[in-house]
Amino acid sequence: MTAITENGTAKALNDQLAGLDLAGRLALVASLGGRAVFTSSLGIEDQVITAEIGTHRLPIEVATLETGRLFRETVDLIGETEDRYGIEIVRFHPKKDDIDEYVAKYGMNGFYESVEARHACCGVRKLKPLARALEGASFWITGLRRGQSGNRAETPFAEYDAERNLIKINPLADWSTETMNAFVADNAVPVNPLHKRGYPSIGCEPCTRAIKPGEPERAGRWWWENDEKRECGLHVPDAALPSLESSAL
C-alpha cells in the first residue's frame, strides 16, 4: 500500500466502512494491502473482532500487550482464544530495564500516588510495547466503541493517526452492548469471566475495579483519579496527556 500521508485516505475509508457489517469492514481492510494489526485486550469487544478474524481466516495479525499486571483470567483467555480459532496472539511485553527504572523512581505501585506516575507506568507497560507491535503497520485495528465513554462518543470507523503514520480502524464504533452480547451468544465466543462479575472494561488488575450500578462502562478504570476522561494514552495523542518528560521512560 502507498504510504499514508493524508487524512483524506482515512475519510474515504471511513465512509466505505460505515455501510458494511463487521465481517465486511474487516475484510475490506484486509484487502487493501499493507500490514494490518489488531491489538486485543481480551475484553468482549476485542473477542468479537478476534472471532471474525479467526473464523474468516483474515490476513490480520492479532497482538496483545502482556503488561505483567493483567488479571489471571485475562492471561488464561489468551491461550483459550488461540485454541478456539487456531490463531496466534502475539504477546508484547514491557522491557525489564524500563520496569526497573520505573520501580526505582515511583515504586511498584506508585501509579496510585499521582497522574504522572500512572501515565509513566502505562508508558512502559503499554505504550512502548504498542509501538513495537505496530512497527511497520499500515492499519491498526481496535475495539473502540462510541458507547464506552464520553471520551469515545465521536469515534469514527477510520481515522488517520499522525503520531504513528497509519490508519486506525474502529470496526465496532457503532455497536451497542446489546449487539455485542447477542453476537457472543450466537457464536459461542469465549469471553473473560470477569465481565459477569461487574467488569465491563478490563485492564491491569491493580488499576481496574468492578463498576457500580449506573456507572459508565469505563468507570472502573483508574477509579482513584478525578478526570472523567482518563485514558492510558493508547487512544489519545501525546499532546492530550500530562507531560512525561520528567519520567523519561
Rank of each mutant, 00 (worst) to 15 (best):
E101G: 04
E101H: 11
V103A: 09
V103F: 13
K105L: 14
Y106S: 10
Y106I: 06
G107Y: 09
F111E: 00
S114M: 11
V115K: 06
V115G: 00
V115W: 02
E116N: 12
H119W: 04
H119R: 04
A120N: 07
C122V: 10
C122T: 06
G123D: 10
P129G: 05
P129V: 01
A133N: 09
E135P: 01
T142P: 00
G143V: 08
G143H: 02
L144N: 01
R145Q: 09
Q148E: 15
S149G: 10
G150S: 10
G150F: 09
N151S: 14
N151G: 13
R152T: 13
E154G: 04
E154I: 08
P156W: 12
A162R: 15
E163N: 08
L166V: 10
K168N: 07
I169W: 00
I169C: 03
P171V: 03
P171K: 01
P171W: 03
A173F: 00
A173E: 02
D174E: 13
D174S: 08
W175G: 03
W175Y: 14
S176W: 04
S176V: 06
T177V: 11
T177H: 02
M180K: 02
M180Y: 02
N181T: 11
N181I: 11
A182N: 13
A185V: 14
A185I: 15
A188R: 07
N192L: 02
P193L: 01
L194D: 07
H195F: 14
G198D: 09
G198K: 02
Y199T: 06
Y199G: 01
G203V: 11
C204D: 12
C204S: 08
E205V: 15
P206H: 07
R209N: 08
K212S: 13
P213E: 09
P213V: 11
P213K: 09
E215Y: 12
P216R: 10
E217C: 03
R218V: 05
A219C: 05
G220S: 06
W222V: 03
W223F: 13
E225A: 03
N226F: 05
N226S: 13
D227S: 06
E228W: 07
K229W: 08
E231P: 03
L234W: 04
P237V: 15
D238S: 14
A239D: 15
A240E: 15
